[in-house]
Structure formats: C-alpha cells, structure tokens
Design a protein around this nucleic acid. Structure first.
Lengths: 162, 162, 162, 162
DNA sequence: TTTT
DNA sequence: TTTT
C-alpha cells in the first residue's frame, strides 16, 4: 500500500547466542531471541511485578548477520529497528502455525550494540560488513552501505526452513 | 528488565470495521486489523511487486476504544504506536497457538487518525475519552489523560477470550 | 560515539511548497517547512487550545529531493523519518546563529506521502529516484536503493548556503 | 493540527550532570545535554571519521526530573523519547535567538537508563516519582502515572529563563 | 532464554 | 481484509 509504515523498535537483551544459518545458496540468516520487560508496582498489593516479553528477531542482511555473529552473544543488550512480518508454516503434524518476527532486512533496519563489553558498541545499517570495528562500516558509511543493499530482497518470500 | 524498550509504529489501513468486545466486568477491548504494504520493482523482471502485511492491533484503553468505535471503520488510515505482545492460547482441538499482537494499553500508546473523512483526524493517548471531537481530549490534554490512566493495567494477564 | 541513536519521526503538513536548491556541484537540496500541532482542552477554562510547532526539514538525498519536487506541495501531509542536526551560521551583522533541522540523508531516512491527492502517496528511502510512480522505486526496492546511497555523505559539513 | 506526530528518539550519553532548576512556583525543570554520534570510514581517504551531535533535552515532568536528578550524571547513557520544540528568546543585546529542544513532558515521553552503573537502569514515564527504585514507579505503573499527569501542561509557554 |  |  502506498503511504504505510511498519516499524518496530526494541531495546533488550539476547536470551541466547545468535543462531546463524545459511540458505542453500549461501546467504546467511541470523536469528536472535530478545527479551524486553516492564516492571511496575501493583496498585493494591504493593508488590513489585515484572512481565517479560520475548521477541523473535530475524536478520536477512549479510552485513548485519556478520555483526551479530561477531559481536553479539547471550546477554548482549541491543537496540534494533526492523519491521513486523508474520510467516505461516506447517508443523510435522500438519498443523498450520504462524510466527510473527521482527525482520531486519531493508534500508530502514538498524542494529546497535548497547554493551560496553564488546569494544564499546556500534551502530550498523543493513549492509555494513562486519570486518571488525577497524574496517567495519558503522551507520552512515555510504560506500559500504551501497555495496549490496539487501540483495536478498527479492527472495523475501522464499520458503526458508528455520 | 530494566532499560528495555518495546515499541511498534504502524501507519496503515483498517481491513475491517473495529471489533469491540467487553470483558465480563465491562471493560472494552477493541480489535483492529491493519494492513501495511510495500511496493517495489523487481530487479530482473522489472515487474511491480507488492507485499501486504496484516497486523492484529488490540486496544485495552477505554478511551481509545471509544475513539476506535466512533471514528474508525473499514478503510480508515491510522497511525498507531503500541507494543508487541505474544499470547498463547489453545484451540478447540487442544493445539497450542501463539498470537502476536500490537497492544495499545500503556501511557506510551497512541492512536492517530490520518483520514480527512471523519472530522479531519485527531491524535489520542490511552485515556482520552471519546465524547466527540468537541469534548474529546486529544493528545496533550493533561486532565483527561490523568483521569483513569490505564486502570486495567493490573489485569494485563487476564485470560480474555477474543 | 558508539551505540547511539538520533531519530526524528514527524507527521505533519507542509506550510509551503518545497524549496529546491542546488549546490555548486549540482547536488539538489530540498527544504521543507512542516507543521505539527497538538490540541487540548484547558483544565480550568475548558477552552480548546492548539499549539503548532514548525519544523525545518532538509533533504540531502537526490532521490528524495526529486520526490519532494514532484509530489509535495503546500498542504501535503507527510511522514518523515530523519535525524536532528544543528548548524551554526553567522548572519549579515556577524551574529552567530544556530538552526536545528531534521535531516533526511542517510539510509535510515524515509519520506512517505500520506495524501491521496497526488497519485495516492508512496513511501521512499533516500535513494529512490523520482521518475514518477511508474518508474520510481518506493521503499524496499533493492537495486535503486543501492544505486547512489547518499553519495553526498562525505560532504555533510559543507558550508551550504540555504 | 489533527493527525500529526512529533517524536524524537535519542540514545546517547550525557555530556554533563543534569541541571535542575525550579520555576518560581516550585516546579522542577531538568536540562540535559546529550551527545549522539556517528562514525564512518571515508570513501576516498579511508580515514575513520566521527561526527557528534549535541542535543538539548528539557524535562518538565516532575517525576522524570526526580529520576534525572537521582540517577543520571555526566556520562550516563540514556534512551529518551520526547518531542521537538523551538523556543524564541532575546539575548542581553536584544538579539532574537531560537533554541530547539527535545521536550519530555506529555504522556508519550520516556526516559530509560541504559547504564548498569546506577542500580541497573529503569524505564520511566512522565509521572513516575523518583523515590528510589524500591518505591519508584517504572513504566507501566498505572496509579503513579495517573497521579499528576503533566500538571504543568498549561504552562508550556511560560517564559522560563534557562 | 535475557536483564535488573 | 485495507490501500494505491
């Protein structure tokens, strides 16, 4: 549709190390599990409450996959900007299932590390290569960004088993 | 968790009129189906492509429910700001299902009409009453906003059948 | 600094037609004036109040400049996503002035028309060419997006007179 | 204007301790200086470049002021969500000046600490009181949020000297 | 399964 | 199921 926006912004921690897979033609896909949570004090009991929400984040950008692989691990705090996408799949017993994921793929996706632990964090767009912070190309670098720009974009509907 | 953010921003059109339900104790819940879509031209074929994504939006705020009921209908264009939430439920055959929804409930939720059709659009926070644009209290109105501030907040985990 | 985010999201109307200028080496720059406003009812007087805020939006992306030139005009409603930037300049009398602008330049910038008036709106990233909606390349189009990717990025600090 | 959005999202570090002032009638106002920066590698020279942007953040919410006062200091990393506002003022020599600030005031404002240093960070809406994390009321707490909800909203245009 |  |  013309004139629409689909944006998700999360700041949370990884519940596990990133899981990197490859499609048959070699493109990487990174899967992250990110927790966000809210805490509040119950009105009546006065108890401290907490509710954690788990998010499935899928990275289709080759550059961001490299960065996820190299710098993120269980516990890492990240800022991510992506879009909502729901996939339909059929499980072993033939039951139709839906999975809603936060996808980092297009030019408006961002992955930013908020930890000081791994060389201090950095901010990346979808096509940044992850050759270390020395040669890597954080957010704003034109040439690297332009390099391959979501070259998998046309495969968005591929039936990728993950 | 401390220091986390869970935010969804959508601009899209309603695929159907809002569906308003009530909990047993009378609190309203509005369900919206919102479509966002992207269009692009295929690299190789040159064809124009379009992909539409459907989002389930659930409004727990009484004020925003009223506004949805009064002003939104099939085709309405809206800006919404809410948060991601995944519910688990069991269908008739006993199969566990998950549904990920964009929830408008807390103080950071917003619903803004982008259509000129219904009195020109307006922007609302979660506790705005919907007594028409004349008496309604668009975004920024302190007193109305403070009135009932998500009084259902503590019921967030209720098992609401919708 | 590593790990930072600088993002502005506006939905508003143009107060005037876009003003397009060119740098000496021919790169286009579009300037937009966008109004956002809030309305509320005064707590005590019950009066309806409105406050309008005017924003200076500057587009350095060649593709988005074309789109602004072709499709936007006074009154157009737009969604824009850019970043805050403050420029220092000296006026004729030698007084130092500062101007804070919302800049659309890098890969995370977006311009989306929310009007039905001009062929119905569309969503664009920074490198979309504006050859009409037929040949234009809305948000998500990989090849066009990759084309020139902010080729002016290195000139960010140029002393552009506008 | 109906149907508008004015939102700024920043993640950055404080360049100095928060500066807390009070209006004549005792309301607190906190001023923060927040730096965001981008780094990139120059296309031609291959040099590593960095550009830092400084933002003026003004907090009108009493609860968020307390939190800023108690938990933020020079170097703190924060996530903030507010809105753009430009003030006009006249300096000592009678010259008209403009200052654009990110204002945290209304129900859609958020302040989240992203440091582990000060008791681990937390997320707050505009009306959270800052009586320590034990009694404080992080994002989502209905009763505290409802307490005074931007009771200074009507004074938005006060001529506050800061 | 994270984090505080 | 929307919208263009």
């Amino acid at each position: 549709m013309a004139g629409s926006v689909n944006k998700v912004i999360l700041i949370g921690n990884l519940g596990a190390d990133p899981e990197i897979k490859r499609t048959q033609d070699g493109r990487p896909i990174a899967n992250l599990r990110i927790a966000t949570s809210e805490t509040w004090r119950d009105r009546t009991s006065g108890e401290r409450k907490e509710k954690t929400e788990w998010h499935r984040v899928v990275i289709f950008s080759e550059g961001l996959c490299k960065i996820a692989e190299q710098y993120l691990k269980k516990g890492s705090k990240v800022y991510i900007e992506g879009q909502l996408q729901t996939r339909k799949w059929t499980d072993q017993s033939g039951v139709e299932k839906y999975s809603t994921e936060v996808v980092l793929q297009n030019f408006n996706s961002t992955l930013t590390m908020l930890d000081g632990r791994n060389s201090g964090g950095g901010s990346f767009g979808p096509d940044d290569a992850g050759g270390g912070f020395g040669s890597g190309s954080p957010s704003g670098s034109a040439p690297r960004r332009a390099a391959a720009a979501d070259s998998h974009r046309g495969d968005m509907d591929d039936d990728i088993p993950f």
